[in-house]
C-alpha cells in the first residue's frame, strides 16, 4: 500500500502541494485531476523521487517507473528507444504493436508526431516491471483512438503485474474508462476523492461542482 501523510511542497512562500492523507491500495489505478498548476506533476515527481518534498511522510514500494509530462525522443529508432538500458527486445516489439506503432518501429524516434511519441514513451515504461507506475498525462497528446490504445495497454499491464498505477489527466473520459478511483486537486489540496463515476456525477462541495461542470464540456 502507498501511504502519504501531511505531504507538503513549498516554493518560497508558496505552497503548491498540501496533502493531509492519501492511501492507495495495491493494484489500484488512481487518476489525479485538477486545473493547470494545481500540483499534479509535483505530486507525481515527489512520488517518483525526482524532487524532494518540503515535509511529510511517504511509504512507497521499491520499484517504480515514472513517465514525465514531456515525452523525450532519444537518438535512434523506436526499438532502441524502448529497449534503452537493456529492456527486452521481444517485449518492445510487442508493445509497439499494441500501441499502434509497429509500422514505424525502425523509424527515428525524433521523427514521430506528438501523439506517436507519447505512446512510444509509454512503451518505454511498460517494457519494464515495477510495483508502481507514475504516468503524467499519458494521453494528453493522443487522439481518441490513441488514448484508447493507451488505456488498454495500461489496464493489461496492471492485470499482468498487479502493480499500482497513478496517472494525472485533464480528460474525464480517461478517468472514467481507466481509473478505479479519482482525486481532484485544487491548489495542491485534495478536493474530491472517490470512484470516478461518483466524483463526476455527485460532487460533494461547491468547488467540486463548478470544477466538474467546467470539466465536462
Amino acid at each position: 500500500m502507498i501511504d502519504v501523510k501531511s505531504l507538503k511542497k513549498e516554493y518560497g512562500e508558496r505552497t503548491v502541494l498540501d496533502i493531509d492523507t492519501l492511501e492507495i491500495n495495491d493494484g489500484e489505478i488512481l487518476a489525479v485531476a485538477g486545473a493547470n498548476g494545481s500540483g499534479k506533476t509535483t505530486l507525481l515527481k515527489i512520488l517518483a523521487g525526482q524532487i524532494r518534498p518540503t515535509g511529510g511522510e511517504l511509504s512507497l514500494p521499491g520499484k517504480k517507473l515514472y513517465m514525465p509530462q514531456q515525452s523525450y525522443a532519444f537518438r535512434g529508432d523506436l526499438i532502441k528507444n524502448v529497449t534503452l538500458g537493456n529492456a527486452d527486445r521481444e517485449k518492445a516489439v510487442k508493445l509497439l504493436e499494441k500501441l499502434g506503432l509497429s509500422r514505424l518501429a525502425d523509424k527515428k524516434a525524433a521523427s514521430l508526431s506528438g501523439g506517436e511519441l507519447q505512446r512510444l514513451s509509454l512503451c518505454r515504461i511498460l517494457a519494464r516491471t515495477a510495483d508502481l507506475l507514475l504516468l503524467d498525462e499519458p494521453t494528453s497528446a493522443c487522439d481518441a483512438k490513441g488514448a484508447e490504445l493507451v488505456v488498454e495497454a495500461i489496464k493489461e499491464y496492471r492485470g499482468e503485474t498487479r502493480c499500482t498505477v497513478i496517472m494525472t489527466t485533464h480528460s474525464p473520459a480517461l478517468a472514467m474508462n481507466a481509473a478505479d478511483r479519482l482525486i481532484i486537486l485544487n491548489n495542491g489540496k485534495i478536493e474530491a476523492d472517490g470512484p470516478p463515476a461518483a466524483v463526476l456525477n455527485e460532487p460533494k462541495t461547491d468547488w467540486a461542482k463548478s470544477f466538474i461542470a467546467g470539466w465536462k464540456i
Binding site: A48, Q50, K63, L65, Y66, M67, P68, Q70, S71, Y72, F74, R75, L84, G85, A87, S121, R124, I125, R128, L134
Partner: peptide, 24 residues
C-alpha cells in the same frame, strides 16, 4: 533536464545517464 528526468524515470543509473546526456 528532460533526458535525466526520463532516464531516471525508468531507473537507469547515474553513469548510464551521464553517457546518455553526452551522446544525445
Amino acid at each position: 533536464k528532460p533526458i535525466i528526468e526520463t532516464a531516471r524515470g525508468i531507473g537507469l543509473g547515474n553513469g548510464r545517464i551521464v553517457r546518455l546526456c553526452l551522446s544525445e
